Amino acid sequence: MKIENKLRVELKHGETTDQAMARTVTSPECLSASVLTICQNIDHSKITEMVDELRQQTAAIHSDDLSRAESMLISQAHTLDGLFAKLASQALTAGQLDVAERYMRLALKAQNQARATQQTLGEIKAPKQIAFVKQANIGNQVQVNNDDNPARSRAKKNQKAPNKLLEVKHGERLNTRAQGSASRDNQAMAPLG
């Protein structure tokens, strides 16, 4: 008896069979199920069940249930740590320097991946807090927003402040016609009148 290798495809309203097939086989769950059946040596006729399970796990993530993702990350971190230990021990027992160097490079890559995986797990468990501040210093440009009322800030910008170099008191101008004296360096030069 031969078991058919069929993937269950559900038609949505207004969708052709070809469109439904394209949507289904390109879904992340179907693509992952295809790889998993090959990697885990599972009969490919079970692909529909694999897709369904992956859809349930995806739905759990969408409803903020991260327990599966946390379990996966800690398992991967342990696997990578074990891989680091195995590769490091092979590097230490290698007879040739170039072989030992290759093993050590791989060991350190596995160690770094284990660290990154644990860091990701930590960020899932305790997300970084985002702070909204009124002052942002970016590179050489500085922007400071200290006023709570933006309309008042714009009104202040539009008012022209008197130039303190040109006016001593409001309305009193500097005497630009006053005659200066000649400098001590060149007494022959008289100031222009």
Rank of each mutant, 00 (worst) to 15 (best):
Q135R: 14
Q135N: 14
A136H: 08
A136N: 02
A136E: 10
A136M: 11
A136C: 09
N137R: 01
N137S: 05
N137K: 01
I138N: 10
I138T: 09
G139V: 00
G139S: 02
G139N: 01
G139T: 01
Q141F: 08
Q141W: 14
Q141Y: 07
V142T: 06
V142A: 15
V142Y: 04
V144A: 09
N145E: 04
N145L: 03
N146F: 08
D147W: 09
D147Y: 12
D147A: 07
D147N: 09
D148Q: 11
D148F: 08
D148N: 13
D148L: 14
N149F: 12
N149I: 07
P150C: 01
P150E: 00
P150H: 07
P150N: 03
P150T: 00
A151L: 11
S153I: 06
S153P: 08
A155W: 03
N158W: 03
Q159T: 05
K160G: 10
P162R: 10
N163Y: 09
N163K: 03
N163P: 04
N163Q: 03
K164V: 15
K164L: 15
K164R: 13
L165C: 11
L165Y: 10
L166Q: 03
L166V: 04
L166W: 00
E167L: 06
V168N: 05
H170G: 02
H170C: 06
G171H: 04
G171P: 02
E172V: 00
E172N: 00
E172F: 02
R173A: 10
R173C: 02
R173V: 03
L174P: 11
L174G: 06
L174V: 02
N175E: 03
N175C: 05
T176S: 09
T176I: 15
T176A: 07
R177F: 15
A178I: 01
Q179K: 06
Q179T: 12
Q179R: 08
S181E: 05
S181Q: 07
S181A: 13
S181D: 13
A182N: 06
S183P: 12
S183H: 06
R184Q: 01
R184E: 00
R184Y: 00
D185Q: 15
D185I: 15
D185Y: 14
D185C: 11
N186Q: 08
N186W: 09
Q187L: 12
Q187I: 14
Q187V: 08
Q187C: 11
A188L: 10
A188C: 08
A188R: 07
M189E: 15
M189R: 15
M189T: 12
A190H: 07
A190R: 04
A190W: 10
A190S: 09
A190I: 05
